[in-house]
Design a protein around this nucleic acid. Sequence first.
DNA 1: ATTGATATGCGGTGAATCCCGTATAGGTTG
DNA 2: CAACCTATACGGGATTCACCGCATATCAAT
Lengths: 233, 233
Amino acid sequence: MDLIDLGAAGAKPADFDEILDRIRQKFGFDHAAYAGSNLIAGTIHAYVTYPEQWKQLYLDEQLHLYDPTLATAARSIAPVHWARLEKTQNFDRVFRNAADFGIVPQGLTIPVRGPYGDVGMLSVTRNCKTDEWNGLIPTILSELQSIAVHVHDGAMRSHTLTRTLHAPHLSTREIEILQWTAAGKSQQDVGDILGISHRTVEVHLRSGRHKLYALTTPQAVARAIAMGMIYPL
Amino acid sequence: MDLIDLGAAGAKPADFDEILDRIRQKFGFDHAAYAGSNLIAGTIHAYVTYPEQWKQLYLDEQLHLYDPTLATAARSIAPVHWARLEKTQNFDRVFRNAADFGIVPQGLTIPVRGPYGDVGMLSVTRNCKTDEWNGLIPTILSELQSIAVHVHDGAMRSHTLTRTLHAPHLSTREIEILQWTAAGKSQQDVGDILGISHRTVEVHLRSGRHKLYALTTPQAVARAIAMGMIYPL
DNA sequence: ATTGATATGCGGTGAATCCCGTATAGGTTG
DNA sequence: CAACCTATACGGGATTCACCGCATATCAAT
């Protein structure tokens, strides 16, 4: 089984378009799309194989705000089968427009989430008989899930690599104390846990704030999470 | 390809133990483990096929705080191959203890994240020749990825079925104030910016902490970032 | 029409945090 | 070997935060 290697450093937008096209050709989909949000970089990025006119209409009408495939996947852990979407007004609004381009409500959206609130969604669709679709999906779902993870990983890496190079260095004590702070412990609590004075805890927090160019401890926690030094608990 | 259906409503802990055992037997792993955190319910749950004595030692020594497989996967989108873990003091601490139980640093941890800051990690390990391990993993990685998603989905459902599932709803004011707080502003600063008293700012912060089940403001900031409500600045 | 919940606003007080200092030990560099 | 830097440790006092109250307005349910 030939997995598409997407984790390579330095992947560019052209690469993503190529990756999606290869997904489309390999599995026989009409279209494939990847939409991702990067909170750290403050960007939303999308790569699609849809026709240019549909893309334009989608943007002009801001259909991403109503797209039930994205909204439902945003609240799901598992892949979302479009057949299970509720037939709401938003559903009609998006798919009535899409029908003009031969895009049918038969598809799949796979959400993937990163550690800093970033989300990527890989969508695929194909206009074919229901039996054929239902026969195809179970045989490739696992591979699509894996591909979705790697597409998102690649998209995030292409943004965060340059930021990581400038990450300030925090000592193990500073990181440890920031981690406990992010977990809801007071300075006294942290002192008790680590067997040091709460004063000492304060010194390390101050030092951490300084290194992260943060004015306050909550800001230091926010930045440490963004830089992958600690994680939310 | 026989996918294990884990999304069935009402899965119980015994079911998870059985699921992990089936994963172990199907793929020939020595052990399989699933550790998940549910920020909304404020719980951490784990199901493992490890020997009882190792489980006890792991808990007694609180090794989950030092486990590099969890820490690294917590910061990753893609699956984490244990071979790539840094040989730190924490690494030695965990795997030196684990060696007494025949558990080797040859494994894989797959992180899966849900829409409300919840994270699940599926770990598998096997004590065999490196060549054998490296030959096995690529052939089943996609399927494991899919299984991890479904295990986590099932774990979350088993909690949300008993509790009302909803992302904590924060008011626009609460989110706005948390955002400014994460940006390094003091309560007085935020009050000045929004034209309200710093007391009022404190009330919204307290309300936000309550809704996010956070003990402190830094913890609320951390969770709000994890849930995609605000972002680091 | 009443009740309850939520959103938004504010004050007094004590605890916690932060800023200003202090110290020793170990490692690196000239 | 001395100087400098980093890591790690602590105290006093001022400021900020958090907890305990209070209030009005709006909306939804009964």
